[in-house]
Amino acid sequence: MRILRNLSRDRLATISLLIIAVTIIAGIFAPLFAPFDPNEINMSLRYASPSWEHLLGNDHLGRCILSRIIYGIRPSVLWVLVVLFISVLAGAILGFLAGYFRGKIDAIIMRICDTMLSFPGYVMALAVIGILGVGLENILIAFALIKWAWFARVIRTSVMQYAELDYVKFSKATGISDFKIIFKHIVPVTFSDIAVISSGSIGSMILQISGFSFLGLGIQAPNPEWGMMLNEAREVMFTRPELMLAPGLAIVIVVSAFNFLSDSLQVALDPKLVISKNKYKENSPYSAVKVREKEVAN
């Protein structure tokens, strides 16, 4: 509740949250929200400008752009969130194992992570797509494969700072089982770190995945996806540059919303930051974890 209260004080965060909620709901219930079938071809409406019937106009096959944008939420945003969830979950399990039990298991997991992270993520994703072939599922698999290592590493750091605290040691001494300690005493305190870490990488993931679709490596025509819509618009950009506008703005708005939310979440989850806002000094122990993923832009 405290988190929500802090968030609601931040007007930008409230707006961002609203945008994200609307996007997700529109994506899940796309058939209800989309005025037309996204794949319905209507050559008489080719390149039609926006009208009351087709609010964003029509594309090179006369398909309703608004409907395509709404259906495009599914691959462009919803599936990205699913992949993020999977890789955070995998990273969290390994990160907890490594950070809590330490020793040999930690060494092994961290060596694997080091090797994974020594591959440039983008190249790795391309390699996986190269092997499995083009398609949205393969891009999603590639991203789940390259992202978990980074999450495992950061979550481990977060777990480690709590695993050494006195109350955890005391619980161990009284003979409470390790799993009980993890779920009762460590998961709740690391949860805010994990939330900030994962929300911070949604934006860049949406950009990267839409980038792959833009290259024609992702979802195949005629299915709508924002990156692919931009790719289709690029072919007629000299004559019809306005077609670039809607899908591009959709990406910018959603990614900005996620980025703003992640920043506000970081503040809302950390009481020290709420009070001092931006004015903290580096040596104040607010969190040992570097929270922002700035690994690859797009």
């Binding site: 950009l207 980038g211 910018v252 900005s256 980025n259």
Partner: peptide, 9 residues
């Protein structure tokens, strides 16, 4: 805002 823009766009 700039970092939220797809670079290809």
């Amino acid at each position: 805002v700039l970092t939220a823009m797809p670079s290809y766009w």
